Each structure stands twice: as structure tokens, then as C-alpha cells.
Amino acid sequence: MKRLLYILIVFLMSGICFTSCRSIKYVPVETVRIEYKTRDSIRFDSIYQRDSVFLLIKGDTVYKEKYKYLYRYLTINNTDTVIKTDSIQVPYPVEKELSRWQKIKLELGGWAFGIALSLLFVIIGNIVYNRKIKKGG
């Protein structure tokens, strides 16, 4: 009978140890986010514009000549790169809400631990009491 009681106690204690809460797991979060944007711009540096009208009179004939020239000598192609760095984020633990069954197990776990301790004290007290009586003490 005592052996069955000891086996039952060991079984209950191992059940309490193996069904404990998990450790906190961290969710990986980006530490630094870098964003690159490029902008191309084409500019004309030197622009010469010439616009003229000539009138030429020869006898009774009038010659009218118009011309318009636009010279673009230098073309500048700029590529600007803008680097934007966001702030550093810190990882934080994510805890999910416990289900009803898990809440009950947590509450009953405290009671079971108290019962197991009181049962252990009763068994130890019983052993000490029986040894004193057997020795005649």
C-alpha cells in the first residue's frame, strides 16, 4: 500500500513538473530599415537663343528672312540618391491570452502543489511517528 502511495506521489510530482509554462519567445523585428530612392534630372547648362528678322530691299522687291536658332551646348545629367534610415525598433515579447483550460490549470496547479506539500508533510510525520512508536520512545 505504501509503495502504491509513493508511486502515486512520484507520478503526480512528475506531472506537475512536465506541464509547466513555456519560456518567453521573442518575435524577430527589423532592427534597421534603409530605403534608397534615386532621382534623375537632365539640365541644360548653356542655352543660346538667336532670333532675327532681315528685310532686304532690291528695287521693287522686298525679301523677308526669319530664322531662329536655339543652341544647347552642355547637357548635365544628375542622378541623386537619397538614403532614408528609419528608427531602430526593439524586439518585445508577444504573449497570447490564455485559454479557459489553461487558466484552470494554472489555478489548480497552485492548489495541487499545496496539497502535494501537505501530503508530503503527513507522510514524513507518519514515518517519524511510526519509528518513535516502534522504538518505544
Results as ranks from 00 to 15, higher is better:
Arg72Leu: 08
Lys134Asp: 11
Val32Thr: 02
Val29His: 00
Asp51Ala: 11
Phe44Lys: 08
Ser23Ile: 05
Phe11Cys: 12
Asn130Arg: 09
Cys17Ser: 08
Lys134Cys: 06
Asp40Asn: 09
Thr19Ile: 06
Ser20Tyr: 14
Asp80Tyr: 03
Arg50Tyr: 14
Gly15Trp: 12
Tyr26Lys: 03
Tyr92Leu: 05
Gln89Phe: 01
Tyr63Ile: 10
Val94Ala: 02
Leu4Gly: 12
Gly136His: 05
Ser23Gly: 09
Phe18Arg: 12
Glu97Tyr: 11
Gly137Asn: 12
Thr79Ala: 05
Cys17Val: 10
Pro93Lys: 00
Tyr71Asn: 07
Val53Asp: 13
Asp80Val: 12
Glu35Cys: 00
Ile24Pro: 09
Ser23Pro: 05
Phe113Ser: 05
Thr79Tyr: 13
Ile76Pro: 00
Ile88Phe: 04
Trp111Phe: 08
Gln49His: 01
Ser41Gln: 06
Pro91Gln: 00
Ile57Thr: 11
Pro28Lys: 07
Ser118Arg: 07
Tyr92Asp: 06
Arg43Asp: 02
Arg100Ser: 09
Tyr36Pro: 00
Glu35Lys: 02
Tyr6Asp: 07
Glu97Gln: 14
Ser52Gln: 12
Ile124Gly: 08
Val32Phe: 00
Val82Ala: 12
Tyr92Lys: 02
Pro93Asp: 00
Lys66Ser: 12
Ala112Val: 14
Asn77Glu: 13
Lys64Gln: 15
Lys37Trp: 04
Lys64Ser: 15
Lys68Glu: 11
Arg100Met: 09
Ile123Met: 10
Gly125Arg: 02
Ser20Arg: 15
Ser99His: 04
Val90His: 03
Gly136Ile: 09
Leu12Ser: 08
Lys96Arg: 05
Ser20Pro: 08
Ser99Ile: 03
Arg3Leu: 08
Val122Pro: 02
Asn126Trp: 06
Ile24Phe: 12
Lys2Ser: 10
Ile7Cys: 11
Ile76Leu: 11
Leu98Ala: 07
Ser41Thr: 07
Tyr92Cys: 02
Tyr48Met: 05
Ile42Val: 14
Ser87Ile: 01
Leu108Glu: 12
Phe113Pro: 00
Arg33Phe: 01
Gln89Glu: 09
Gly110Tyr: 13
Ile127Asn: 13
Ile24Ala: 08
Ile24Ser: 10
Ser99Lys: 07
Val128Gln: 02
Tyr63Lys: 11
Arg39Phe: 10
Leu98Asp: 09
Ile9Gly: 13
Gly136Glu: 05
Thr61Val: 13
Ile88Thr: 03
Ile83Gly: 02
Val90Ser: 04
Thr85Gly: 02
Tyr73Met: 06
Ile47Ala: 04
Val94Gly: 01
Asp60Gln: 14
Tyr92Met: 04
Ile16Gly: 07
Glu107Ser: 04
Ile83Glu: 05
Lys37Asp: 05
Tyr71Glu: 03
Leu120Cys: 15
Asn126Phe: 09
Thr61Glu: 09
Arg22Ile: 01
Glu35Trp: 00
Gly114Tyr: 13
Ile83Ala: 02
Arg50Asp: 14
Lys135Phe: 04
Phe121Ala: 11
Ile104Gly: 04
Glu107Tyr: 14
Tyr73His: 03
